[in-house]
């Protein structure tokens, strides 16, 4: 009995074995192999092409990245100020200071009319000054008697004199300012034309370069003319008419006083 069971089992195993390994009958299909080889060769060729395409794409990517980098760099460069930071042009505070002082001018009490445009009295002062200058505004009465007329005239003289004095002081200040500015401009123009000639310094087109050279030349001319102007302003100070009149008056008064003190010798 046991033997039969063993036999059945063995037969079963044999059948199972046959069933599992039955397909593994080695066959050869030469044409299929030929086609496969052909396929393989073509696929290898494709692989090669893929490789090339990949290389090219990578190169393109690298170049494109470089372009992008350059653009970025130029963009950043346009915003950066470091390349002109050490130039004298970078610091305009001196010029601005001189100009502001020139606008403010030397202050004189009573004549703040053009001291500051924001001055709260700006609207009232001109009217007052007009009234003083014309002895009476349109709405005011004329001076009542001779004494007040004289006083009014004197006040008017005083205002005119102080106005001329202020103008002369401002001229002196402008003259000095122009001297400083001429110095400054010479320095800046020299620096500009030096720096423009340095290679690798600025990234600008030739048109801009030539133009900047021209500007440097303009500034030199401006500096020269400023010096001449400064001299003219200083010389102008001496020939202010009302001041000369005042000087003459003083001279006459002093001469009169001297004459009064001198004894008259009669022979």
């Amino acid at each position: 009995m046991r033997l039969y069971i063993c036999l059945i089992l063995t037969l079963g195993m044999c059948i199972a074995y046959q069933l599992t390994f039955a397909q593994l009958v080695p066959v050869i299909d030469k044409k299929a192999i030929g086609k496969s080889v052909e396929n393989l060769a073509v696929n290898l060729l494709k692989n090669q092409q893929y490789k090339k395409i990949q290389d090219h794409t990578e190169d393109t990517y690298t170049s494109y990245w470089a372009i992008q980098f350059l653009q970025q760099q130029v963009q950043d460069h346009l915003k950066s100020v470091s390349s002109i930071q050490d130039l004298h042009w970078f610091d305009l505070s001196k010029s601005i200071y001189l100009a502001t002082e020139l606008i403010k001018g030397p202050a004189q009490p009573g004549l703040e009319v053009d001291y500051f445009l924001e001055h709260p009295l700006f609207n009232q002062h001109p009217a007052a000054i007009y009234r003083e200058l014309c002895l009476a505004g349109s709405a005011d009465q004329l001076p009542t008697d001779l004494t007040s007329l004289h006083e009014g005239k004197q006040r008017r003289e005083a205002i005119i004199n102080s106005f001329h004095r202020l103008a002369a002081e401002r001229k002196a200040y402008a003259a000095v300012t122009f001297q400083y500015l001429a110095d400054d401009l010479l320095l800046k123009a020299t620096e500009l034309s030096e720096v423009l000639k340095q290679p690798e310094r600025f990234s600008i087109t030739e048109g801009e370069r030539i133009r900047l050279h021209m500007y440097a030349e303009e500034y030199l001319l401006l500096a020269a003319q400023m010096l001449e102007h400064s001299d003219r302003l200083l010389l102008n100070i001496s020939s202010v008419k009302p001041m000369q009149q005042q000087a003459n008056q003083t001279w006459q008064q002093l001469e009169r006083a001297a004459v009064a003190k001198t004894f008259v010798l009669t022979f």
């Binding site: 001429a182 110095d183 010479l186 123009a189 020299t190 034309s193 423009l196 000639k197 340095q198 290679p199 690798e200 310094r201 600025f202 990234s203 600008i204 087109t205 030739e206 370069r209 030539i210 050279h213 021209m214 440097a216 030349e217 030199l220 001319l221 500096a223 020269a224 010096l227």
Partner: peptide
Amino acid sequence: HLRRTLSTAALGVSDQQSQQQAVLQLI
């Protein structure tokens, strides 16, 4: 090319030595 100065170096406008000297003399 933008950084090169060769093309404008020979131009008369880039040589301002005499003008600078003149202004210096004026000062």
